[in-house]
Simulated assay, not measured.
Amino acid sequence: MAKEKTGGNGRESGRPDVKPGHGKFAVLGLGNFGTTVAQQLEELGNEVLAVDEDEERVNTLAEEFTHIVSADVRDERALEELGLGDFDAAVVAIGENLESNILCTLGLKHLGVPRVWVKAKSPAHHRILSKLGADRIVHPEFEIGVRVAYSLNYPFVLDYISLGSDYFVVELALSETVTDSTVGDLELEERFGIELLALKRGDELIRDEKTVTALREGDRLVVVGKQVHLRALADIL
């Protein structure tokens, strides 16, 4: 049996430039990870249904969400009563209870939810979810651990996105050793096989004359290339 609470959600997003979304999402499991996902989706303007098995937790979070409900996520009939088959996507954010995680995933797939993202705890759990047909499997603790390690090892890397096949888009901070030169002087493509996407200077994004613009302290480069080539570039930064 599902029990819904209607919250006020008086939080300010602090992101006035974010365009509102138009999706309909369910987040099942309201630990730290699930709550964050649900809050961000709602702040982006989407319709969000937040779900947890723990009624006390639902009561605690009632003011955080417009739609929040307590339900037995292991029961496919309970999921069907919530109308989840009509949602654009669902995120199974249940971490500790593997039975609930797996049965919830199975129920959502049976209901025909177009996209089911699931939090996994281990490689073995990942394999089970793959066989159940999860559309995307995430490992939040592992992924943030990798990002922290990269940030500590490469302090000049401000942000990065993995494109797969060992390719990355990376935002790099520049050291004093390269200021007063131009990007062209660095010969990124010739020496490193790295493509420059843009030069960032404060809030400005320089693209048209990025290779001839004199570099200043505080400038950042946005580049794309293979990890081995990016590491070679690190030696001169």
Rank of each mutant, 00 (worst) to 15 (best):
Ala173Asn: 09
Gly184Asp: 10
Thr179Ser: 12
Val157Phe: 12
Glu189Gly: 06
Gly145Glu: 05
Thr179Cys: 09
Gly184Gln: 05
Leu172Phe: 05
Ser165Gln: 09
Tyr167Pro: 03
Leu152Tyr: 05
Leu172Trp: 14
Glu143Pro: 03
His139Val: 05
Ser175Ala: 15
Leu186Gly: 11
Ile144Trp: 11
Phe192Thr: 05
Phe168Val: 05
Gly164Leu: 05
Glu143Leu: 09
Leu174Val: 12
Leu172Asp: 11
Glu141Ser: 04
Leu172Lys: 05
Gly184Val: 05
Gly184Cys: 00
Glu187Pro: 00
Thr182Asn: 07
Leu152Val: 11
Gly164Ile: 08
Glu141Lys: 11
Leu188Ser: 10
Ala173Met: 01
Phe156Asp: 13
Ala149Gly: 00
Leu188Lys: 05
Val169Ile: 15
Glu187Phe: 04
Gly193Trp: 04
His139Met: 01
Leu158Arg: 11
Glu176Ser: 15
Leu172Ile: 14
Asp185Gln: 04
His139Tyr: 09
Asp185Phe: 00
Gly184Ile: 00
Val148His: 07
Leu174Thr: 06
Asp166Gln: 03
Ser181Tyr: 12
Ser162Thr: 07
Phe156Arg: 14
Ala173Gln: 03
Tyr154Ser: 12
Phe156Thr: 09
Ser175Arg: 14
Leu186Asp: 11
Val148Ile: 13
Ser162Ile: 02
Thr177Tyr: 08
Leu188Pro: 09
Leu174His: 02
Leu186His: 13
Asp180Ser: 15
Val169Gly: 06
Pro140Val: 03
Val157Met: 15
Val170Tyr: 04
Ile144Gln: 13
Ile194Glu: 04
Leu174Lys: 02
Leu188His: 00
Val178Asp: 08
Tyr150Trp: 07
Asp185Lys: 12
Asp159Tyr: 01
Arg147Lys: 14
Ile144Gly: 01
Glu190Gly: 02
His139Glu: 13
Glu176Arg: 15
His139Gly: 01
Ser175Asp: 13
Ala173Val: 04
Ser162Ala: 14
Asp185Glu: 12
Tyr160Gln: 14
Asp159His: 08
Leu158Gly: 02
Asp159Ser: 14
Pro140Glu: 00
Thr182Met: 02
Ile194Ala: 03
Pro140Met: 08
Leu174Tyr: 06
Asp166Pro: 06
Ser165Asp: 15
Val183Gly: 07
Arg147Leu: 07
Tyr160Pro: 09
Glu190Arg: 15
Ala173Thr: 02
Glu187Leu: 04
Glu190Val: 06
Arg191Ala: 06
Ala149Cys: 07
Leu158His: 11
Phe142Asn: 11
Ala149Ile: 04
Asp159Ala: 08
Tyr154Leu: 14
Pro140Gly: 05
Ala149His: 08
Ser181Gln: 15
Ser151Phe: 14
Pro140Arg: 05
Val178Gln: 07
Glu187Trp: 02
Glu190Thr: 07
Arg147Glu: 14
Gly164Asn: 03
Phe142Val: 11
Val148Glu: 04
Arg147Tyr: 13
Thr182Glu: 06
Glu143Arg: 02
Glu143His: 02
Asp166Phe: 01
Thr182Asp: 03
Arg147Ile: 07
Glu176Ile: 08
Leu158Cys: 00
Gly193Ile: 06
Ile194Met: 01
Leu188Cys: 10
His139Leu: 13
Asp166Asn: 01
Phe156Ala: 07
Glu141Phe: 09
Phe142Met: 10
Phe142Ser: 14
Asp166Trp: 03
Glu189Thr: 10
Val178Tyr: 14
Phe192Cys: 04
Leu163Val: 10
Tyr167Gln: 06
